[in-house]
Write a protein that binds this DNA or RNA. Sequence first.
DNA 1: GTGAAAGCGCTAACAC
DNA 2: GTGTTAGCGCTTTCAC
Lengths: 364, 364
Amino acid sequence: MSTTIQDVARHAGVSVSTVSNVLNGRTDRMRPETLARVQAAIAALQFRPSKLAQQLKTGQTPLLGLLVPSLTNPMYGYMAREIEAYAQQQYGYRLLIGSTYRDRQKEQAFFDDLLAHGVRRVIVISSLADERHFESAVERGMAVVSYDRGATPGKRSRVWHVMPDNFEAARLATRHLVERGHRRLAFATVAGMTMSRSAKIDGFHAAAEEAGLRGEAEVLDGGALDEYGDAMIAEVGRATAQRLAAMDPRPTGVVALNDLMAIGLMAGLREAGLEVPRDISVVGMDGIYLGALSNPALSTVQLPVPEMTRAMVDRAMQPEAPNDTTQIDQVFAPERLVQRESVAAPPARQRAAKATNDEEKTAP
Amino acid sequence: MSTTIQDVARHAGVSVSTVSNVLNGRTDRMRPETLARVQAAIAALQFRPSKLAQQLKTGQTPLLGLLVPSLTNPMYGYMAREIEAYAQQQYGYRLLIGSTYRDRQKEQAFFDDLLAHGVRRVIVISSLADERHFESAVERGMAVVSYDRGATPGKRSRVWHVMPDNFEAARLATRHLVERGHRRLAFATVAGMTMSRSAKIDGFHAAAEEAGLRGEAEVLDGGALDEYGDAMIAEVGRATAQRLAAMDPRPTGVVALNDLMAIGLMAGLREAGLEVPRDISVVGMDGIYLGALSNPALSTVQLPVPEMTRAMVDRAMQPEAPNDTTQIDQVFAPERLVQRESVAAPPARQRAAKATNDEEKTAP
DNA sequence: GTGAAAGCGCTAACAC
DNA sequence: GTGTTAGCGCTTTCAC
C-alpha cells in the first residue's frame, strides 16, 4: 500500500538493514555517501516507517492511553489538552483516549484494548473504582499513573500517583469564607466517596474547626453521577442549591467540590431566588477558565494543572514501575486562591425565607 | 510477554490456524469439541489477540483518528464524547485524538502519524486549512470525514462532509432577535474566515434583509485565535463586548458565532456595565449544556450533535471513499431555537451612555 | 561498513 | 475439519 523499507533499500541500492540503521540513528560507522543515498531515497519516496511493524519487534508504540471520566467536564478537557500537548512535544507520543463515566467495566475494557494495541503507558484520571485492575495491568507490563488518588495506606503499589493537595485546597477555600466573616458553612459534593472527595471534606472540616465552627460546617451530598458522567455534576450542584435554599438556618458560605459544581450551584441558587454573593457566597476548586466567565465570576482555588499533567506524563514515560524504595505519590500544593466575585461578607442579618428566625448562637 | 496464539494452540492441542479460525468466527464446519477446547484454552490463558499483529496482516486497525481544534472548547469536548461513545459501541473502535489549534503543520503531522500507526479513518473537526492534504490522505487509503465545511463548489472531492446548516442556524438566531423587536443587529465573530463562519454571516444578513434591516446588520470580527485555540474564543467575545458597548448607536441584539463566544460576550458586556438582556440581547449557536448554566441563561440555536456525530462515524466507517455519484455533503438542520433568558425586547428608548442621542430613523 | 536471515503474533491460502 | 506455511514491515544479531 504505502512505501516500505524494502522499496527504500532497493531505491538506494542497499540492504534493508542499512536503511533500518539510518532510521534508528546507527549512522556512526556508516560511509557518508551511503547515508546520503539512503536519506535521499527516504525523501524521494516519502517513506514513513510503519509504527506497527516497528512495534511488533520492539514492543513499544508511541501511544499514551488516557482514561477520563468524561470529556464534557471542562476540567478534564483542560487536562487532556495539557497532557496531549506535553506528551507530543516532549516524547512524540499520541493520545489514545477513553471515557469511562466512572464505570468499572468500561475501565477494564479500555485497559484490555490498550494492551491489545500494544500501549504500555496509561494515565487514569479520577477513577472511582479500586485499583486492583491497575495493579494487574502493571503486572502485564504497563506503566500506569493515577490522578487524584493516593496510594492506599499500608498497601504496596506499583502504580504512580499524582494529585493536588485536596485537603489543602479545600482548607484554603473554606478559610476564605471564614475570613470574610461566614460562620455557617456548607460543603457541596456528589454521592459516592473517592479519596479526593474525602480529602476535600477533611480540609473543609479542618478549616471549620480552626475557626471554632465545628457544629456549623455541614456536608451536603447530592445525587450520584449517572452514566452521562461529569457534565451532570453541574446538575447535581443545581439540585443541591434547592436544598440549600430551603435550609433554616441557611449556610451563608458554601464550598463546592469543584468549579463545575460551583457553576451549577450558582445557577440553582439563582433559580431559587438567591443572589450570589449577596445572599450566599460560593467558592470552587480547580481553576477552569469558565470560572472567569460566569456571573458572578467564580472565586476558586487554582490547581497547578500544567505542572501536574507534566508530572503525570513524565511518570508514565518512566521505564520502570515504582518499587518499594521509590516515592510513588506526588502531591501538588494548590497554586493560589483566586478571588473573583462569588464571595462577599454574609448578609448582615439573616432574612429567613419564611421560617421563624431562631438563631441566637454566638461564636466563642 | 503476554500469551500468544501459539500458547493457545499448544494448550488446546490444535494448530494456530484453528485458533485463528475461531478468533475470526470461521467456526461453521468445525467440530464442536475442537471449538470448545479452543475456547477453553483462550479463557484459561486469558488470551487477547494482539491487534498489532492482526493489523500487520489485515491492514485494518480498530482505531479512529479525531482531529479537533482544541479540547477546551466544550462543544468539541461534547462532540468528542459522542463520537467516542458511538464508535466504540457500534464499531468497537477506539479514539486516537489530536488537537491542532487550527495549525496546518500540526494537522499534517497528525495525519502522517495516523498513517504510520495504520489508522485508516479520521474525523476532522472545523479545520481552518484547505483540504488539499485531506485529499492526499484519501489517496493514501484513508477515509476522511470533515465537519463544518462543505465541498468546495466545482471541485471534485473524495472527502466526506458533515455539517449543520449554518446558514439556517444563524438565520433562526437572527430572526429570534427581529421577532422580539430588535432593529439594530450585530454578528460577533473571530478573525479568519471559514466556510461555516461565512455561512453563518450569510444567514445573519439574510434574516436582516427579510426584516428590511439591511443597513442595520453589522458584522464584528474580533481578534484571531492564538495558539491556545478555542478557549480563547471566549476572550475574543469578551473583547468584542467592549467594542460593542462603545458603539453609537449601539446594536441592541447580537448573534454570537457560537455559544462559547456568547458566554464570553456576556461576561464582557457585564464588565462594560451593560446588562443582558435589559440593555442588549445575545443569542448563541451550538447548544452546549453550559449555556443553560450561564447567567443569564443563554438563548441559543441547538444543533443536533448526536445525529451529526453518528453520521460522521458512519461515514468514516464506509469501506469506500465517495465517488462522483455519491452524495458527499450531509447537512443537518438546526434542531430548534432554545429560548432562555438572554434575549428580551430592546430597551424602549436608547439611553446612550454618554453620546448625544441622534437616532431618528424609523423602520419601514 | 554492509548484508543475510530470523523472527515479532497474527491471517489466510492451500494442503491433507 | 485441521494443519502447514508464507508472509505483513520492521529490527537486530551475526556473518562477511
